[in-house]
Design a protein around this nucleic acid. Structure first.
Length: 120
DNA sequence: TGGGTGACTAAGT
DNA sequence: CACTTAGCCACCC
């Protein structure tokens, strides 16, 4: 009921994410692009609310960094799916203290160049 | 109905 | 490559 149908964006985003095969990753912007929108942030919001039911770890940011606040949670998932990963600084974390401000601080990164997947 | 937030992106330094 | 600033879109209260 109501005018807004929950199957507008949420179901569509979840559908695309669920459509991503194991060992592959897609950026928020890529998922949003499949929906015909550029609301990469909205996709992240949907994931935060309903992502619990989908492979959110298969969805990463443009730079190849995993979702903020969930890097440690996604890491074991990537290893389980054999997703191509890259160690920060070629294996040795710079350990240059914490960035503090926004952005990530993950000690690893996803090889989006090799794991990026595009829908047929 | 309106305002604020955010699992983002791109460009510049 | 990493950090900073500005822009955009959809969802939540």
């Amino acid at each position: 009921m109501t005018a807004t149908e929950p199957a507008d964006f949420v179901s569509r985003v979840l559908g695309v994410v669920d459509s991503i095969p194991p060992g592959r990753v897609m950026t928020y912007g890529g998922v949003a692009a499949q929906l015909g929108s550029r609301a990469a942030r909205a996709v992240g919001q949907v994931m935060a609310r309903y992502g619990s039911e989908v492979a959110w770890w298969r969805v990463i940011r443009a730079g190849g960094h995993p979702p903020i606040g969930h890097e440690a949670q996604a890491l074991p998932h990537y290893e389980a799916e054999l997703t191509p990963l890259l160690r920060s600084a070629a294996g040795l974390p710079t350990a240059t203290a914490a960035s503090a401000t926004t952005t990530t601080d993950a000690a690893y990164r996803v090889d989006y160049a090799a794991a990026r997947w595009s829908p047929t």
